[in-house]
Design a protein around this nucleic acid. Structure first.
Length: 476
RNA sequence: GCUCCCAUCGUCUAGCGGCCCAGGACGCUGGUCUCUCAAGCCGGAAACAGGGGUUCGAAUCCCCUUGGGAGCGCCA
């Protein structure tokens, strides 16, 4: 039997890292078992639904490289199917019409909660007489459809991550399958979908564990075997609460826009709650080869941005410089280093060189793009502290002399520049140590950066000489 | 309130009865290299929530407590 799994977000928010991890686990499981990864939108909530979010969610998945094999399906387009399936249950006496109004139910619910009771439907419409039903219909009430659950017994969930979990029927009630307007509720739509889509493994967030017995009841009502369930732990914020906007970046797009590489996010998310011995770095193929549900840790995990950034730097350091260089272009614009048109025409060789020179100093593409400001444009500023500390009159004079010494260096490469510089400094009775920082400040405006001579080469003769000669004006 | 889940360094985790006075990684920290900052390399501090059992032996099994989380909707 081929494995069929699904990722089923509801379009009520952007794809956040928790959802992305659930998607990733499903995708890995499908790939590992040569199965099918299905995408389905659970969009039966007309109130909270935001159709404009669908494309961004798809784009997030694409960006992560989690491509689906089937779908996306939309529950909102399958409403007649749910009605048909509900009709079966009604005919077989496994479901019944409930004429209670939402107001009546809500009143009972709050009363139960106030009395510190577990709110449960009291089964009032379970055995209405024909007369009672007639009266309700005459009142114009539209019935919802409820499942008729057994009065006693237990439901056992065999969870691939948590093991055996038992629920007593007394905890459950006759929950609603179809709303009075004919739309399915979540639990019902999920089961009908999972049955009709042939889902073999339901891998989803922990918060659904409590829904599982209800869903199993529906499977049983249809006489259909249940899939294998696997409830993955939640992803929490630093303070152990549910991850939300107030914790900073949570959406996949936010990380992308900050310059995080998809392979870094995927690697990080995979290792969050799952492990394979002591290994930290995984390519996608390694993840696929080694992923398994029983190696998923059952407890909730805190999202640690530091570790994500460490992984990002790893992928920055080891990735293909040319590809990374191309990824830099949008950041040149975003950082206001240059216009979009200018960013388009930066030679890709320049970008590649920036990557090679600065990748060990950057944790994100944003940081990696920053040096382009002084390397490729004159649109940068000098750190006043650095100027004050290093650009003394004595050093400025030395820099002027050095500029002359370097004016005719040919070719203008790091090796030649270093040789010429050292020779000049020796002739002046000084050493590189004395001039390196002043020179760096003169060229870049700052005290931290890549190797001095590599920086010069990349910057080009014209800018280097101009900046070395003109630093005196900074003091004025 | 009731039900369910979870519990090893600050964080992610290894550990599935003796290999553990608990290993790796991020972060933190000392040193080293060096034109700066990084990166790299070498070193350090840092945890089995508490209490009962079971056992010759428990981080590992059981129970209780505590703490965290989720659910209890004509939301998903």
């Amino acid at each position: 039997m081929t494995v069929r799994v699904r990722f089923a977000p509801s379009p009520t928010g952007e794809l956040h890292v928790g959802g992305a991890r659930t998607a990733l686990f499903n995708w890995l499981f499908a790939r590992k078992h040569k199965g099918v990864f299905i995408l389905r939108f659970e969009d039966t909530d007309i109130e909270r639904n935001r159709p404009e979010l669908i494309e961004p969610i798809l784009e997030s998945l694409r960006w992560l490289g989690l491509l689906w094999d089937e779908g996306p399906y939309f529950q909102s387009q399958r409403l007649s199917l749910y009605r048909e399936w509900a009709e079966k249950l009604l005919k077989e006496g496994k479901a019944y019409k409930c004429y209670c109004t939402p107001e009546e139910l809500e009143a009972k619910r709050t009363a139960a909660l106030a009395a510190k009771q577990k709110p449960k439907y009291d089964g009032r419409c379970r055995s209405l007489t024909a007369q009672e039903e007639q009266n309700f219909i005459r009142e114009g009430r539209q019935p919802a459809l409820r499942i008729k659950i057994p009065q006693s017994g237990t439901i056992v969930v065999e969870d691939a991550i948590r093991g055996r979990v038992e629920f007593d029927f007394s905890e459950l009630d006759d929950f609603i399958l179809l709303r009075s307007d004919g739309r399915p509720t979540y639990n019902f739509a999920v089961v009908v979908d999972d049955i009709t889509m042939g889902i073999t493994h339901v891998i989803r967030a922990d918060e659904h564990l409590n829904n599982t017995p209800k869903q199993i009841l529906i499977y049983q009502a249809f006489g259909h075997p249940t899939p294998i369930f696997a409830h993955v732990p939640m992803v929490l914020a630093k303070d152990r609460s549910k991850l939300s906007k107030r914790h900073g970046a949570t959406a996949v797009f936010e990380f992308r826009d900050r310059g995080v590489l998809p392979e870094a996010l995927v690697n990080y998310l995979a290792r969050l709650g799952w492990s394979y011995g002591d290994q930290e770095i995984f390519s996608k193929d390694e993840l696929i080869a080694n992923f398994s549900l029983d190696a998923v840790h059952p407890s909730a995990a805190i999202f640690d941005e530091e570790k994500l950034l460490w992984l990002n730097q790893h992928y920055l350091k080891t990735g293909d410089p040319q590809r990374l260089g191309e990824l830099l272009r949008p950041f040149l614009v975003k950082l206001n280093i240059m216009s979009e048109a200018e960013a388009q025409v930066v030679p890709s060789e320049k970008l590649t060189q920036i990557v090679v020179l600065f990748r060990e100093r950057a944790k994100t593409l944003t940081e990696l793009a920053e040096p382009a400001r002084y390397l490729l444009t004159d649109n940068f500023s000098y750190d006043p502290e650095a100027v004050k500390k290093f650009l003394t009159p004595e050093k400025i004079a030395l820099l002027k002399g050095l500029a002359e010494a370097l004016a005719s260096v040919e070719p203008f490469t790091a090796a030649e520049l270093e040789q010429a510089t050292r020779a000049y400094l020796e002739s002046q009775g000084t050493a590189l140590k004395e001039i390196a920082q002043p020179c760096r400040v003169a060229l870049t405006g700052r005290t931290a950066g890549a190797g001095l001579f590599e920086t010069m080469e990349l910057m080009g003769r014209e800018r280097v000489l101009a900046r070395m000669k003109s630093v005196a004006s900074l003091l004025a």
